[in-house]
Amino acid sequence: MVLDEDRGSLPFTLIHGEALVACAAWALGEAGVDIVDATVVWEAVTEAGEDFVLHDSLCPMTPPDFIAACIEQARSSGHAVVGVRPVTDTVKALSDGLVGDTLDRDSLLAVTSPLVVPAGVVVALARRPVSDLAQAVADLAAAGHPVETLPAPTEGRRVTSADDVRLLGTLTDARG
């Protein structure tokens, strides 16, 4: 499933002449994933007995081979697998409205895409994971489903603005 809900108009911004959401869908297809429309009821997904892949349209240039690697890891471990990137921003603790200590970035990860839920976990879920992948990971973990991480390549980064899209476009320009 390509996630575009609750993301404003950014999924329809162009990168290399194509909408981000289209690039994300093509990456899923090239990874061998059958795309499920958001209107498909969860019961139909669980009855299919297959893995469920959520791919964020704001991670449009995630390579298909990375998506396939996440699927393979989820199938072999039986655990959900999520792509992650290192945290590069300074992160501060907040307590009672006051800014506190700086957190160690090396101990933090930024959730990117995809989130692969293996078939054995899919059947145990009462509803589709939420479209916010970080929250979906937290929900799975809270429900007792281990979630493994796999470092995503640079081109798998998440964009949050038109400036990010331009940067990602430069990073992934096939002309070198």
Rank of each mutant, 00 (worst) to 15 (best):
T172V: 13
L103G: 06
S76Y: 08
E18R: 15
V82H: 00
L115F: 04
V81H: 02
G97H: 02
V33M: 00
P114W: 03
P86R: 08
W42S: 01
I15E: 04
T172I: 12
V82G: 02
Q135H: 06
V40E: 08
L58T: 09
V2Q: 03
P63R: 11
L140H: 00
T62Q: 00
E47D: 15
P63N: 05
V121M: 10
G78D: 09
P64W: 08
A25E: 13
S57R: 08
L171V: 13
P60R: 01
W42M: 01
V130W: 00
E18L: 09
P118Q: 11
S161V: 15
S77E: 11
G8R: 13
L168Q: 06
A93R: 04
D101H: 08
T39R: 08
V87L: 05
A44V: 11
S95Y: 12
R166T: 15
L125R: 01
L20W: 08
S9I: 14
V45M: 00
P114M: 04
A38P: 09
D96S: 10
S131Q: 05
V41R: 05
V33K: 01
A119D: 11
L109A: 10
A48K: 06
E148H: 02
E72F: 03
H55R: 00
H16I: 08
D34M: 02
V87D: 00
A174K: 10
V82K: 01
A27S: 14
R166L: 15
T149H: 02
G49D: 11
L103Q: 07
D96F: 12
L115S: 05
A162R: 12
A126V: 09
L103I: 12
R128C: 11
A134G: 09
T102G: 03
G120S: 05
D101L: 12
A48D: 10
D56I: 12
S113Y: 07
L94A: 13
T102P: 00
S57F: 09
H55E: 02
V84R: 00
D164I: 15
L140D: 08
V121Q: 05
E155I: 14
V40C: 06
V165A: 07
G29K: 01
D96P: 02
P146R: 06
V123N: 06
A93M: 11
A24T: 10
S9E: 05
D65Y: 04
S131P: 03
V122I: 10
H145W: 03
D173R: 13
K92F: 15
D132S: 14
L133C: 07
S57K: 05
V116S: 02
G156P: 03
L109C: 07
G83E: 04
A138Q: 02
G144V: 09
T39D: 06
V84D: 00
R127M: 09
V147H: 00
L140I: 11
V87M: 07
P11E: 00
D65K: 08
M1P: 06
R7P: 10
G97S: 01
V159I: 12
P64I: 10
L115V: 14
P64N: 05
G49Q: 12
C23E: 07
E5I: 15
T160H: 13
G29S: 04
E148I: 12
V81N: 04
S77D: 11
D51C: 07
S57V: 09
A110P: 04
G17V: 11
